[in-house]
């Protein structure tokens, strides 16, 4: 088959581009060790009883160590608990692990302007870890349509310097 030299050029460039994209993704997940939000492997919860489960019956911030806190959060129509009625207060420059689930329908968790983004599916626990590099306020929005008041489903994260973090609001283990 005879292929015109211009066509050879742009077919070649396209193939190089595809190879480049695949290479960059492989580089990101191996050398840069990038992570994506996951679900807790092998752990299913019953959405109808999750509100009375061990951790999710008392959603909030728990301390694991001085440099590691975890957040158990319920996303439900149409609030984040904690986050919506009370802002979620977290220390800056500290490892934070989020565990989130939903008792009703699928919700989204997104902190606009950041890389924090997860889908919260009833029956599964969405989880990821992060560090907030600076003390400031971040918003939370639901980015999965979850019902008539979906557009009002929002929350707030107040990140404070670790020295000002008030541990009296933590959920005891």
């Amino acid at each position: 088959m005879h292929v015109h030299r211009f066509e050879k050029l742009w077919i070649g460039l396209s193939l190089l581009l595809i190879a480049g994209f695949i290479g960059i993704v492989l580089f990101g997940f191996t050398v840069m060790d990038l992570k994506v939000p996951g679900i807790e492997e092998g752990r299913q919860v019953d959405p109808t009883t999750v509100l009375s489960d061990e951790e999710f019956s008392r959603p909030g911030v728990r301390k694991i160590s001085d440099d590691h806190y975890e957040v158990y959060m319920i996303a439900q129509q149409f609030i984040f608990r904690p986050g919506s009625t009370q802002p979620l207060t977290l220390p800056a420059n500290t490892r934070i692990t989020f565990h989130m689930t939903a008792p009703d329908v699928m919700h989204g968790f997104e902190v606009p302007g950041s890389g924090l983004n997860a889908t919260i599916i009833p029956g599964q626990i969405a989880t990821f870890s992060t560090r907030f590099p600076e003390a400031k306020s971040y918003g939370i929005i639901c980015h999965q349509y979850c019902g008539a008041a979906h557009h009002n489903m929002q929350g707030k994260i107040n990140v404070v310097p670790p020295s000002e973090f008030d541990e009296s609001n933590l959920i005891s283990q």
Binding site: L17, V36, R95, T97, G115, L116, F128, T130, Y138
Partner: peptide, 22 residues
């Protein structure tokens, strides 16, 4: 396409914003 793809680096990684580490 190459220029916009390169700009993605700044959108995703060079901002001083939290991202998923684990």
């Amino acid at each position: 396409l190459l220029v916009l793809y390169a700009l993605l680096y700044f959108v995703e990684f060079a901002t001083h914003a939290p991202h998923i580490i684990d």
